[in-house]
Every structure is written in structure tokens, then in C-alpha cells.
């Protein structure tokens, strides 16, 4: 299978994630779509690592996974804090920094 196919597939996954971030209002689903974008970029990194035949891109992908885990933890913590303070869990309603 050519590397090109994998890269085009990763572009498609990234674009689907971008569309989801634009269209959804629930911050949970927005976080899930950001995960999609990170996964698409991960696939591109691993494809290019295979194209070059060394493992550097795979290390990049592993660090992207670490960053994604951190982002999930902080994002979910924010959503739980929003829910506990009886705020509207909606990204359109949260347009100010102070609740």
C-alpha cells in the first residue's frame, strides 16, 4: 500500500474533525473532535516515518498521544467544573472567562 493513501486518509480524518469542531456546541463532542484531529495528524506522522524508514516520526506520534491525554484530562476537568457550578454546558454560552 502506498504511503500516499495513508496521508490522504489522515487528511480526511483531520477534515472531519475540523467540521465537527465547527458544528457542535457540546464541549464534550468538541473535545472528541479535537481527538479526531490529533489522530489524523498521528497517522500522517507515522506514515512519514514509514516513508523515511526511521523511527523519529513514531516518537513524535507518541508525544502527540501524551499531549492528547493531557488535553483530555484538563478539558474534562473543566467540563466537570462547569457542570458542578450549574453552568450551561454549551460552548456558545461560555463566551466570557468569568462564569
Amino acid at each position: 500500500m502506498d504511503i500516499e493513501w495513508f496521508v490522504v486518509l489522515s487528511a480526511m480524518i483531520f477534515a472531519i474533525g475540523v467540521g465537527g469542531v465547527f458544528t457542535h456546541r457540546n464541549p464534550l463532542v468538541v473535545l472528541l473532535c479535537i481527538e479526531l484531529m490529533l489522530n489524523g495528524s498521528n497517522l500522517a506522522l507515522i506514515s512519514f516515518a514509514r516513508m523515511h524508514g526511521n523511527g523519529d516520526g513514531q516518537v513524535f506520534a507518541l508525544i502527540v498521544m501524551v499531549v492528547a491525554a493531557c488535553e483530555v484530562v484538563i478539558g474534562l476537568g473543566l467540563i466537570v467544573a462547569m457542570y458542578r457550578r450549574r453552568l450551561d454546558v454549551d460552548v456558545d454560552a461560555l463566551s466570557e472567562l468569568r462564569g
Partner: peptide
């Protein structure tokens, strides 16, 4: 929100 899918499609075509 309305232009989101369109923007995503344009982005995919551009990257492809």
C-alpha cells in the same frame, strides 16, 4: 456552524 462542513471539505481537498 453553518459553514463548518463546507470549510472541512475545502480543507480536505486542499490538503489532498
Amino acid at each position: 456552524a453553518r459553514l463548518g462542513p463546507l470549510f472541512a471539505g475545502v480543507l480536505f481537498v486542499e490538503v489532498a
